[in-house]
């Protein structure tokens, strides 16, 4: 009962944070509302007894990555008059909502068909570092390996797009 209340609280907070990210005009406010989403997601993970993911979500996403993003925004020193003038933004937002209504309706209908299952107590080892590690390196070795390729492309690409170029070399 208590956990159900927590679930609703975290879910609403996560959605509100995501809405704030899209709707706030100033990037700093957007970044701060993304932090709210990240932390509420961590709460949802903890309700699922996913201990390691909960900790990683807080340390890596809500902590490290978000502070990096906020530092960058602070370095850019964005004032109100630096922001673009978006005259039709409410029209676009309304249009986007209209397009999304059928998708949301569809999703709610799908979610309605999920049979209600009583919460069960998982084993005490569930979601710990050892258990996640075993699953990651035994069952999911291939995705784990090819993510390294993905990170390499991203790294080289970031250097190419933003770095200094020696053309022709």
């Amino acid at each position: 009962m208590f956990s159900e209340g927590l679930f609703y609280a975290f879910s609403v907070l996560a959605v509100l944070g995501a809405l704030g990210l899209v709707l706030f005009r100033h990037p700093m406010r957007g970044a701060m509302s993304l932090v709210v989403t990240m932390i509420s997601l961590a709460g949802l993970y903890s309700l699922l007894s996913a201990k390691l993911i909960f900790v990683l979500q807080l340390i890596v996403y809500a902590g490290a990555i978000m502070s990096l993003i906020i530092f960058i925004i602070m370095f850019l020193n964005i004032q109100d008059n630096d922001l673009p003038v978006e005259e039709k933004r409410f029209a676009y937002t309304a249009g986007g909502i209209v397009v999304l209504i059928p998708v949301v309706y569809f999703l709610i209908k799908i979610a309605g068909t999920i049979p209600g299952v009583e919460a069960t107590i998982v084993g005490s080892g569930f979601g710990g570092i050892k258990e996640v590690g075993l699953v990651l390196f035994q069952d999911w070795l291939l995705p784990f390996e090819i993510v390294s390729l993905l990170l390499l492309v991203t790294l080289v690409g970031a250097v190419v797009l933003a770095g200094k170029r020696r053309v022709g070399k």
Binding site: V153, V156, V159, V160, R165
Partner: peptide, 11 residues
Amino acid sequence: NKFCTLDFYAI
């Protein structure tokens, strides 16, 4: 068109 570097082929 001179804007290429070697990374192009790597990517």
